[in-house]
Structures are given as structure tokens and as C-alpha cells.
């Protein structure tokens, strides 16, 4: 008997190759596959990648976080303001991550204690956080002049490699280890796979959900820090439209939308697929509205491929 090829497991790599090949051919003259543009893609994608790592935890636990956009902009603005008042970089960054943790604790606390589905909780907090970030500076942008900050977290390079990409790799490694090799990671997957069985097996379901939401927010706030450093400033619009890309990256990456199964490495590849898509559509010279439509279509195709159940 011929061994059936389980394509589902590799769907993210297949979509990666397809998207990459298609754009390489179509956009040959526009320098899509030039090293400079490829590094550019990785740079643009880093924020999505890092936020998607946390989202991967949330989705794996059977949760979702729709509020990451607000967390990204709040964090970016907070760090920018602190740096403006000459607070040192480590303190500002820690405060930024602390802000992420706080947002996550609000989400997680309501999810775990009041037992409201995370979808509804974060649907509510997403507008709260977004509103708060508008109030913070009265819609004003805050520039960042601290060179060290900008270089370390954003626009700097080590050799030919962008520091953004290095941060992505670091976060991916940490995320992968926590996800696959710690008891917390196992708890997240068990809660997502069968909450009741997890509870019977002695897993503290509420605690697991709480910390998953916190992790998700912290990774979004790190993405916010990277945005601020890359843009040399912060604005309430940062991260505004990222939630769909982030969720799509996770699902294209092979994480089960109903929870219980997933991969961090796949998530990063999924983000890069989204990044290639964004970059390619831009290079093709589509207008913003056309890009939006094309992106939506491709995402639906990619997601439906990765969600399809293989049958015997």
C-alpha cells in the first residue's frame, strides 16, 4: 500500500513556496527576489511574527485575543513618552512590557474569573485599549530620538541582518521552547484540546488561560516596541490593522483554530507568507484598496487549505 502523503502538515511550507515562486516570477523586473527586498520583507514582517507567537499560544489554548492592536499602540506610545522624558532605555522597555502584561492581565482575569469567552472580552477591550492610546497623546505622534533604542530594537543591523529579524529569531526560540518543552506549554495545549479532560488531569485551567492571555499581550507589546524603534516614533495608528494578519499567520502556520495543536516555527513561516503577500502586492503597484481585496482573497484560500481535514 502506498503511504498517503499527509500534505496538511507541510501546508505552510507549500504556501510559502507557492507565494514566493509566484511573486518571484511575476515581479522579476521589480526586484522582488533581490536580497535587499527580501531583507526588507523580513524587517516588515517582524512585528507580525512576534505578535503571532503570543497569538499562537492563545489560539492553541482555545482562546483568541482581538485586542493586540491596542496593546501595540499603547506600548509604543508609552515607551516613546518615557524616552522623551529621558528615562533610560531598559526602564522604558520594561515599562512597555509591563503595560502589555497589565493589558493581558485584564483580558485574562476576565476570561478566567468571570468566565466570558475570550472572543467577547477582547472584542470589548480592543476598543478600550485603542481609545486609551488615542487619549494618551491626544492623537499626537511622539518622535523617538534615542539612537540606542532605535538601533537595538528597530532600524539597526548586525552585519547584513536587521536587528528586528534577530529579535524575531530570539522570540521564536523562546516561544518554541516554552510551547514544546515546558509543562506550561503542555497545559496550554491540553486546555485547548479538551478543557474538561485537562481539568480532570489536574491542570489549573483558569491559571493557564490567565497566563496565556498575559503572554499574548506581552508579545504584542514587544511588537509595539519594535514598531516604535523602527519608525523612530509612535502613533496611535500603529498595529491598528494587524490583528487579522496576525491571526491569519497563526492559522496558515498550521495551528488548529479550535485549539490543542500548533507550532511556533510554522507561525513564523506563516507570518512571512503574509509579509511576502503584503510586499508583493505593493510592488505589483496595486492601490491600497486593491491590495486589501487581494490580501483577503489569498488569506482565505491559504487558511481554508490549512483548515481542511484530511480524510481516509
Amino acid at each position: 500500500m502506498i503511504k498517503k502523503f499527509n500534505y496538511k502538515k507541510y501546508i505552510v511550507y507549500i504556501s510559502f513556496i507557492i507565494v514566493f515562486t509566484v511573486f518571484s516570477i511575476v515581479l522579476k523586473d521589480k526586484g522582488f527576489s533581490s536580497p535587499a527586498n527580501l531583507m526588507n520583507i523580513l524587517r516588515q514582517t517582524s512585528m507580525i511574527s512576534v505578535a503571532a507567537i503570543g497569538m499562537c499560544f492563545a489560539i492553541s489554548a482555545g482562546l483568541i485575543d482581538l485586542s493586540i492592536g491596542g496593546v501595540i499602540s499603547i506600548t509604543a506610545l508609552l515607551v516613546a513618552l518615557l524616552l522623551k522624558y529621558s528615562i533610560s532605555v531598559p526602564v522604558a522597555v520594561t515599562a512597555g512590557l509591563g503595560m502589555g502584561a497589565l493589558c493581558g492581565a485584564i483580558n485574562g482575569g476576565i476570561v478566567a474569573k468571570v468566565r466570558i469567552p475570550s472572543f467577547l472580552v477582547t472584542l470589548g477591550t480592543s476598543t478600550i485599549f485603542a481609545g486609551a492610546s488615542r487619549i494618551m497623546t491626544n492623537l499626537e505622534a511622539v518622535p523617538i530620538t534615542n539612537k540606542v533604542f532605535n538601533n537595538v530594537f528597530g532600524s539597526g543591523n548586525i552585519g547584513p541582518i536587521s536587528s528586528l529579524f534577530i529579535w524575531t529569531l530570539i522570540m521564536m526560540t523562546i516561544g518554541h521552547i516554552v510551547y514544546k518543552k515546558t509543562s506550561f506549554g503542555k497545559a496550554v495545549l491540553s486546555v485547548g484540546g479538551n478543557e474538561s479532560a485537562a481539568r480532570y488531569s489536574g491542570i489549573n485551567v483558569d491559571k493557564t488561560k490567565f497566563w496565556t492571555m498575559v503572554i499574548c499581550s506581552i508579545s504584542a507589546s514587544f511588537a509595539g516596541i519594535m514598531y516604535a524603534a523602527r519608525m523612530h516614533g509612535a502613533r496611535y495608528t500603529l498595529g491598528e490593522n494587524d490583528v487579522m494578519s496576525v491571526i491569519a499567520a497563526v492559522v496558515i502556520g498550521g495551528t488548529s483554530f479550535s485549539g490543542g495543536k500548533g507550532t511556533i516555527v510554522g507561525t513564523i513561516i506563516g507570518s512571512i507568507v503574509i509579509g511576502i503577500l503584503n510586499n508583493g502586492l505593493l510592488l505589483m503597484g496595486l492601490s491600497v484598496s486593491e491590495q486589501m481585496i487581494a490580501r483577503g482573497v489569498v488569506i482565505i484560500i491559504a487558511v481554508s487549505l490549512s483548515l481542511r481535514e484530511s480524510r481516509d
Binding site: 515546558t182 503542555k186 495545549l189 479532560a197 480532570y200 488531569s201 491542570i203 488548529s256
Partner: peptide, 21 residues
């Protein structure tokens, strides 16, 4: 099915669910 197993997880993950820590 309801309280004992996580159907989509491996034999290993199911068996060790209570003692990972």
C-alpha cells in the same frame, strides 16, 4: 471521551498530562 482524553493529542501527551511538572 469527555473527561479522559485529549483526542487530537498523542499517546505520550495524554499519558503524561498530569505529571509534566
Amino acid at each position: 471521551r469527555k473527561n479522559g482524553i485529549v483526542a487530537i493529542h498523542s499517546v505520550e501527551n495524554n499519558m503524561l498530562m498530569s505529571i509534566w511538572n
